[in-house]
Simulated scan of single mutants.
Amino acid sequence: MQLKQMTEKVYVIESRTINLGLIIQGKECIIIDTGLDKTSGQKISNLILEHNFELQAIINTHGHADHFGGNQRLVKLTNVPVYSSAWEINFLKTPKLEPFSLFCGANPPRILQNKFYMGPKSPGEDISCNKDFIDYWGLDIISLPGHSLGMIGIKKDGILFVGDAYLSEGPLAKHPVPFLMDVDASIETLFMLRDDPDCNFHVNSHQGIYSTRGETGQVIEANIRRLEEIYVLLENTIASSPKTSQELAKIALDYFNADCNTYFVYQLIIVTINAYLSSLLDKQRIQPIMKSNVLYWSK
């Protein structure tokens, strides 16, 4: 891990897999996200001690394991509070909720209860109920739903940590059907981020620090086009003939020449397809039908 200074008080902690945030005030500091596991938490602790900072709090953009997996280690070492949105703290406190949601609300099999989908249990407080903390650190907390239902962004001095609100160019090429839980909210979030005049840089959690003077708009536009492309693909496919969710997942993957070789990734794809189906159904553009005890989606 290494520090990249963005402003006098805002740093990005760059690592091989994720960008984290460090905000300082004198010798005090707060961390935005903590990575996948206790190893990440220990590395963050070492980095803070190396620079003689004193950790005061952790903020998690959302409750996915690769963003809060280091919480438990840091809390054990420092006993600091952890903040996120009211929705996301449920996943911090009860990590089994993530594989539970991926497995359609049933008790998830053990193979889904791994560190990539179920981080170590963490405390959590609703950041919106802690105005004094927000004011002391001079933060703007911005709702960014879509990738997860309660994801938040943290803005300080023109630098906005956007979590997984959109994919940078490399991951978008590698994962052409981006994981999301609410497609309409995700598109609204993308338009809001694209049109926000008060940011100088976006810090994307995975492989991206983008200047809002050109770079950010291009990357966000690519994400908007991709989500809209998938939306049209699924709606047109269903209009041609009824399809199951599994058939639609295959059609979307084949359309982008993508390979899905693991069960773990397939579960993410199925959740994403269901998010599109939910939107189409709510807008009365498709309907569920039963044929021979099989659920199909039809125009």
Rank of each mutant, 00 (worst) to 15 (best):
L3P: 05
Q5K: 15
T7R: 13
T7D: 14
K9T: 15
Y11P: 08
T17I: 13
N19C: 06
L20I: 01
G21N: 03
I23R: 04
I23N: 06
G26H: 11
K27R: 15
E28G: 06
C29P: 03
I32S: 00
D33Q: 07
G41A: 04
N46R: 11
L47I: 04
N52P: 01
I59N: 01
H62W: 03
H62R: 05
A65E: 02
D66M: 04
Q72R: 09
R73G: 00
L77D: 07
V80D: 03
V80R: 02
P81E: 04
S85R: 02
W87T: 09
W87Y: 11
F91E: 01
L92D: 02
P95Y: 03
P95A: 05
K96S: 11
S101P: 03
R110F: 12
I111T: 12
L112K: 04
K115R: 14
F116N: 12
M118R: 00
G119N: 04
P120N: 07
P120F: 01
K121E: 14
P123K: 00
E125P: 02
E125T: 03
C129M: 13
C129H: 13
Y136T: 10
D140Q: 13
I141D: 04
L144S: 00
L144A: 03
L144P: 02
P145L: 05
G146E: 05
I152D: 00
G153M: 06
K155P: 00
I159G: 02
F161Q: 02
G163C: 01
Y166E: 02
S168Q: 00
E169S: 14
G170N: 13
K174F: 11
H175W: 11
P176G: 12
P178C: 10
P178W: 05
L180E: 06
I187W: 09
I187D: 06
F191M: 11
M192Q: 12
R194H: 11
D195C: 10
D195I: 05
D196S: 12
C199K: 00
N200Y: 07
F201D: 03
F201W: 12
I209Y: 04
I209F: 03
S211D: 12
T212L: 10
Q218N: 09
E221C: 09
A222E: 08
I224G: 00
R226C: 11
L227C: 08
E228W: 08
L234W: 07
L234G: 08
L234S: 09
L234D: 08
E235N: 14
K243M: 15
T244N: 08
S245D: 10
S245E: 15
S245H: 06
L248R: 07
A252K: 08
D254W: 09
Y255L: 04
Y255D: 09
F256E: 11
A258D: 15
D259H: 12
C260E: 13
C260Y: 06
F264A: 13
F264K: 08
L268R: 14
V271C: 13
T272M: 09
T272R: 07
Y276E: 06
Y276C: 05
S278T: 15
S279Y: 13
L280P: 05
L281I: 10
K283T: 14
K283C: 12
Q284C: 14
P288N: 06
P288W: 04
I289C: 10
V294F: 09
W297H: 07
